[in-house]
Structures are given as C-alpha cells and as structure tokens.
Write a protein that binds this DNA or RNA. Sequence first.
DNA 1: TATGTTTAACAACTAGCTGTGTTATCTATG
DNA 2: CATAGATAACACAGCTAGTTGTTAAACATA
Lengths: 261, 261
Amino acid sequence: MTGRTTRGARQDLIADHVLREGSVTASQLAEAFGVSLMTVHRDLDELERQGVVRKFHGGVSAQPSSVFESNVAYRLRTARAEKAAIARFARTLVEPGMAVMLDDSTTTLGVAELLADAAPLTVITNFLQVINAMSRADRVRLIALGGEYYPTHDSFLGVPCIEAIESLRADVLLTSTSAASGGLTYHQEQEIVLVKRAMMRSANRKVLLMDHTKLGGTALHQLALLTDFDDVVVDGGTPADVVRALRDRRVNIHVAPLDTP
Amino acid sequence: MTGRTTRGARQDLIADHVLREGSVTASQLAEAFGVSLMTVHRDLDELERQGVVRKFHGGVSAQPSSVFESNVAYRLRTARAEKAAIARFARTLVEPGMAVMLDDSTTTLGVAELLADAAPLTVITNFLQVINAMSRADRVRLIALGGEYYPTHDSFLGVPCIEAIESLRADVLLTSTSAASGGLTYHQEQEIVLVKRAMMRSANRKVLLMDHTKLGGTALHQLALLTDFDDVVVDGGTPADVVRALRDRRVNIHVAPLDTP
DNA sequence: TATGTTTAACAACTAGCTGTGTTATCTATG
DNA sequence: CATAGATAACACAGCTAGTTGTTAAACATA
C-alpha cells in the first residue's frame, strides 16, 4: 500500500480503513501511505471537519454511522459510478419545458449536471450545490427553496422550505433517500423526511433514485412506501433477484445500465 | 495609456471609455491598450455578457443606463472604496446574537464579508453571493430566502421570497438602493421594490446604506421615504451640504470615514 | 466578390494555488 | 516534569487554470 496516490484518493482510503478498523493511530497511517505525519494530520483534520472521523490524542476513530452517513462530503464519495448511471437514466425522464423538482441528495446532483441539455426548463431545489450549478445554466429558470441552512446537507430545510414547496407544483420530482427495504423507504433525519414528503405532495410524477448499496437497509424514520413513487430507478449493479422481488411488489422499477469501460 | 494592466482592470477601463464616448471600434481599443485584437474581442464578449455594452460589426456601443445599471457585475465595480467604508461602519451596528437581514445589493455584500467577526449571528438573505459566503462561515445560522432566480441581480425574488420574508422577523435590516433624492428613495425594478418593502416590514431597525454617488438621482419606482429608515449610512465622500440638508430633513444620517492610504 | 471583421483552435506562458515536508514550538498525558 | 503527540510557520515543488497571441477559417458588409 505504498503507491503514490493523490490527496483525495488517500483520504478515501484512510476513511475506509478507519471505518473498517474502528480506529488507527496517525503514525500507522503515515507509515502505511509513505507520507509524513504532518500530511496525515492534515488529512485527518479534513475528515474530521467532514464529520467522518473523530480525532483523539494519537489517532482517530470512526464516527457512529448515523453521524457521518448524513454528510454531503461523505455521500459524494460513495457509489459514484452507480449514481452517474442512474443520473443518465433519470435525465431521459426530463423533457424540455418541464418543471423539475430536485431534493438535496448527491444522486440528484448528478442529474443536475446533465440537465442543461434538456433546456428550456424550470428547476426547483433546496440543494445549494444544485442552485449554484443551475444559476450558471442558460435557459434554465431556477426557483430556489429557502429555509434554514444545514451544513451537513448543504441544503435548506425547515418550515420556510416546506411552505415554499407547498405553494408550488412540479411536473416531476427526482428524489433519493438513504435506505429502502421491505417495501418501505427510510431516512435518518426528521427534517429531511418532512421536506421530502412535502416535495412528494407537490409533484405530479414522483421518481425515486436509489443506487443498489442502499437497498436492504433501514434508517430511523420511515419516509414513504416504495409504491408511492411512480418510478424507481436503480443501477445495473442491483442483484437480479432484488429487482424481481421489487417488481413482484408492483414497484415500477427501471435498471440504469452501468458504464462498461 | 499603454501601461501593462491586468484583465479585470483593462475591462474596467474599456467599460468606462465606452460609457463616456458612447461607442468605440475594436481596433481603437487594441491600439489604446497595446493588446491584440483577439484579446479585445474577448474583453468585449465578457462585457456584453455582463450587459454593459452591445456589440456591432466593428466595435461596441454603450447599453442604455437602465439596462446595465441593474447588473451585479457592473455594480460590483462601482464605488468600491465608498462601499467598503460604509460596510465597515455598518458592521459596528451588528452585535453578536442578532438576526440580520441583508438584501441583494453589492453594498451589503461588503458587510457580509465582515460579519463572521460578529458571530454568533443569524443571517437572512436572498442574495446568492451572501448565501455562499455565509454557508462557509462558522457559528452563523443562515436562513436563505427562496424565490425565482434573477441572474442580473444574482438573487431570489418574487412571491415565494416575499412570503418567506413575511414569516420572519429580523433585529436589523441592512439594505441599499440605486438612488435617493428629495427625501425619497428609488429603484428601477418593480420586483426588487416589492422585496425591499417586505424586508422593511419585517425588521425592527431599518438601516439604509448609500454611497454618495447615488445621492441626488432618481429611478423609475419609489421605494420609501428616507425617514422610513432608522439610520442612513453614507460615505465620507459625501459633500457636507448634502449631509446637512439630510439632517435638516430629520434623517438620522451617519458618515462612514473613507480609508486614507 | 473583395475586404475587413469576427470567431475557432491551438500553443505558450504565467500566476497562483495546492499539496507536501521540515523544523520549531506548543500542548496533552502519564 | 518528561515525553510523545499536535500544531504553527515557513519553504518549495508541481500543477492547474486563466490569459494571451498566432494562425487560419468563417462571416458580414459594401
């Protein structure tokens, strides 16, 4: 494990290692990656800032999953290829002239990057990263949902957000959540659940985007039934029997093919 | 006029020149700045994109003032020192723990950059540049006002924005507008006027920030009386008789000293 | 069509930033 | 109080992104 790696890749590996082992010392990491102690400390500071690990005198330990799994920075790193595949598929559900609502999930961020091609378009979102991306896009009418800013999600939530959603109506909602199993979808945060539900009430067609790593899990709060969604898009890495089981439950499921490089 | 200048500075000079002369040819500009024609064209494309000039075959002409004066990019370039002075003063009106509302003016953007020092704070704004700045700030609770995005202002306006404002209450509002004269304040855009008025209704203390270049002018729509504001902050470049006249009108005026380098 | 103007594509250069290590100082823990 | 660990400050290498000029092709205007 001594190959020269870039900063980001090394941090990913450190994060994986910590999550797997529970805790490590700084000097072990310096040794393992052939890099100076100072650099390790800087990586660990960064990971701590992102909420993935906790530092203690001598090293770091993993955060309880409930904490770091909410994190944008962490979520952006997981299942990248799967999300890209799903985004490409979701993009085809959007046609020029539509009003598209996007929630604050990293999966929909992938869609946003492709949406410029579908212009003219109205985009409605509470996700700051999407807001910034779309503010630069041509021929996209952008409607931002305000609210209280949550740094962990990089989005706006709370009562003001929900009220704003309720006075709008979108043609299609592209949304995602952290877990699904047994015909139900889940999310670990109350605030997010309330916003997602409001979005579902304000959209004609509700599309759920889920990479296969999220299937079979649960989280603290129930969000909705899988059958409450008009479409569910999963990536090509989803086991065939899982797809079949969902189809048997009358879930309108689509499989987005992964890139084969 | 042949000294080596940076891109931004050169564009400023070109903009000034065009606004003064009405129109210029591309080759004249290339000559004047000792720079290639291609570079001039690139500068002009940029200025056109910002809405400051209009291109025609052979050169450019100035946009009518009503068009370019609304532009963030243009406004950001004007009266920088004055705005900085006013921002420093306005910063002293904000105390830790307050809920501060900021409108979408370049003057308040200057204040936002200084606000981190006054944390903990609640900041309420519809200005995307302030949202982005504050989302990175520590110990600042950020409440974004949503609405329809207006690229010329880089902010969110319209009914959703006004409704969001109406359900909030701020300790202090820092606002600015494009012109003031005869005891009245003005702005050239209806949408903006409605939002500013809503903000005024939702704030306990209303502070108007005006650099002296805006005094003595008017614009299409009346915004409010100068005496509707609890405080009016002008920069040190304001003529003494103007300050006296305002004071005679019972305007609670403050003069922010300019930097003397 | 002829001429001047604009754009596109490429390459060179630059400035500034990012990532890194070293050293020295500070801090925590036993 | 001693020692290992953490941080701050500085310096430097490498790289990326932004800026410019050149050339050639496309375009507009008379």
